[in-house]
């Protein structure tokens, strides 16, 4: 599964994209966030903010959105365009 990070979150994690296999037990965005937090203290800290937004296959998603291995997931802070 491809996971993209944008904005301040990308800088905090030091990467804009990772590729990880969908682990057994990772069914939705909430599960994925918990799994990513295990990657280290920067990840734990950066992903614990309550204001993060999620997209699955370039459509806004929620913590309960179900995932499959072929999905493109994106995690990012609130948007500030315009």
């Amino acid at each position: 599964m491809k996971i993209l990070f944008f904005g301040n979150l990308r800088e905090q994690l030091g990467t804009g994209e990772i590729e990880v296999p969908l682990a057994p037990g990772t069914n939705n965005i909430a599960d994925l966030l918990e799994a990513l937090k295990q990657r280290g203290s920067e990840w734990q800290q950066a992903l614990s903010t309550g204001s993060l937004l999620y997209a699955v296959n370039q459509t806004m998603a929620t913590q309960s959105t179900l995932l499959k291995d072929s999905d493109e997931v994106a995690l990012f802070p609130p948007v500030t365009g315009g």
Binding site: F6, G81, G82
Partner: peptide, 8 residues
């Protein structure tokens, strides 16, 4: 656009 388009 201000609240949904993914720009930072």
């Amino acid at each position: 656009l201000k609240t949904h388009a993914p720009f930072w």
